[in-house]
């Protein structure tokens, strides 16, 4: 564990807390893509199949349980909470996310570290996480306006990815045999998807104005 990895995990956790806070405090999920949230729930469940077979650390197990539970809770709220579900921007959230699931799984069948059920689901989760933000970015682009908490949610999610890249650079330089092509290449692709959002987030922060995305 290095400082970049810890910062990455903490900003990831913070992003989920911001999202839960938004949903809880405003009883609204407007501006949030349910499809992206469903993809994250699939990502965590598929990746943490090793929860019962490999023990790494108490921290690791705790975080895995938090990520699975929070992502399922968010999806549950958006689907079934009587007030929250009414604020869902259904007509804006039309990205065909099943394509992403299918494509990620197909890629995992081709590119994986070992041909075992766990390893294929692990690779699948890495590929799916890389593109899971797309429905969310498309929704924001369509609605144009981004409320503060939604903007901060995506900002922290992007920060988490940026810290993970620094973590890999650090590990590459300090660990003798650190090569993880699948995770690193997917991670760079995932972070690149946030570049546009970060640009507009930075502009609005600099001008102290509300975050707006161009149509």
């Amino acid at each position: 564990m290095n400082i970049f990895r810890l910062a990455g995990d903490m900003t990831h956790l913070l992003s989920i807390l911001v999202l839960l806070l938004k949903i809880y405090a405003t009883k609204s999920c407007s501006g949030i893509s349910r499809k992206t949230q469903e993809l994250y729930a699939i990502v965590f469940v598929a990746r943490y199949l090793d929860l019962f077979t490999d023990f790494i650390s108490v921290y690791n197990t705790f975080m895995k349980v938090v990520f699975i539970a929070s992502s399922l809770a968010i999806v549950w709220c958006m689907r079934f909470h009587p007030m929250v579900r009414r604020s869902y921007d259904r007509e804006l959230d039309t990205f065909r996310h099943y394509f992403l699931v299918g494509a990620s799984f197909a890629l995992a069948l081709i590119l994986h570290e070992k041909f075992t059920v766990q390893e294929i689901f692990w690779a699948f989760s890495i590929y799916l996480e890389a593109v899971a933000i797309l429905p969310q970015l498309v929704l924001l682009q369509r609605s144009g306006n981004v409320d503060n908490l939604t903007g901060q949610y995506i900002f922290f999610l992007g920060a988490y990815r940026a810290f993970y890249i620094l973590n890999w650079i650090y590990r590459y330089l300090t660990e003798p045999h650190f090569t993880r092509w699948i995770a690193c290449v997917s991670g760079v692709v995932q972070t690149a998807l946030y570049a546009d959002f970060f640009y507009y987030y930075f502009i609005s922060w600099k001008n102290n104005s509300k975050l707006k995305l161009p149509a």
């Binding site: 990895r5 995990d9 490999d54 690791n60 975080m63 692990w122 993970y164 973590n167 660990e175």
Partner: peptide
């Protein structure tokens, strides 16, 4: 030396 688990990241 530390044994590094294969998927030790989240």
């Amino acid at each position: 030396a530390d044994v590094i688990a294969e998927h030790d990241e989240l």
